[in-house]
Design a protein around this nucleic acid. Sequence first.
DNA 1: TGTTAATACATAGAAGAACGAGGTATACGC
DNA 2: GCGTATACCTCGTTCTTCTATGTATTAACA
Lengths: 115, 115
Amino acid sequence: MSPSKSDLPQGTLDLLILKVIALGPVHGYAIAQRLEQVSRGVVQVPEGSLYPALHRLENRGLLAADWKETETGREAKFYRLTRKGSQQLKTEAADWQRLIDAISLILGMADRGAQ
Amino acid sequence: MSPSKSDLPQGTLDLLILKVIALGPVHGYAIAQRLEQVSRGVVQVPEGSLYPALHRLENRGLLAADWKETETGREAKFYRLTRKGSQQLKTEAADWQRLIDAISLILGMADRGAQ
DNA sequence: TGTTAATACATAGAAGAACGAGGTATACGC
DNA sequence: GCGTATACCTCGTTCTTCTATGTATTAACA
């Protein structure tokens, strides 16, 4: 009974990825799992969105990656934030907050009075 | 001194438009103004985004329009919600809330200890 | 041993949204 | 008469997202 798949608004994925990586080095596959778990299934990131996003962020110099072994003995690409990525996260998180506050104002408009 | 232009995440514009129209019939130009005013300048909708969005919503049967005169005696296209549009607004607003709650959980993750 | 599922990466192609730039036309103030 | 604000519109580019597809390894299980 899928609790309604909620497509992530464009641009938001980058922010969420940066946030998860900020908590400590993780590999891509784990990022998607983390996002789904923490959001209780609301945020679901298809691999076709995830990996391009990671490459994008790496190309922009916000992420750096190293191949390492996971606990289960498999090779995986572990990402970490660059200094630039750290700043970007800060900026984007603030932008996001300002934006949802603004949208809350709009969605909170009561439809009564003189139209 | 532009208070940092916040590009609206894709998909969000439709929701905001539906909300403004739900408050009473308005024409396109006024919708953009209303959004900017209520959001205190955070949400800015360029006409190149606004009108295509309105046409999109109309084509999907969520909006209906009539040409009328404004208070200032000019012809303008006044939009109103169809029944379907009203339902869509309800759904999308709920989806939006669920989503930002989920994202808040993610952004609120503290980077200490065992996750 | 075979086969299925989960892990872990990747890309190509299509679809869709957003935006800048351009265009039309009317009303109002000066 | 001219500039500005109002009010509409669309074309083309750019970017993100997603579906589908592919590779390879490990673990479980019959």
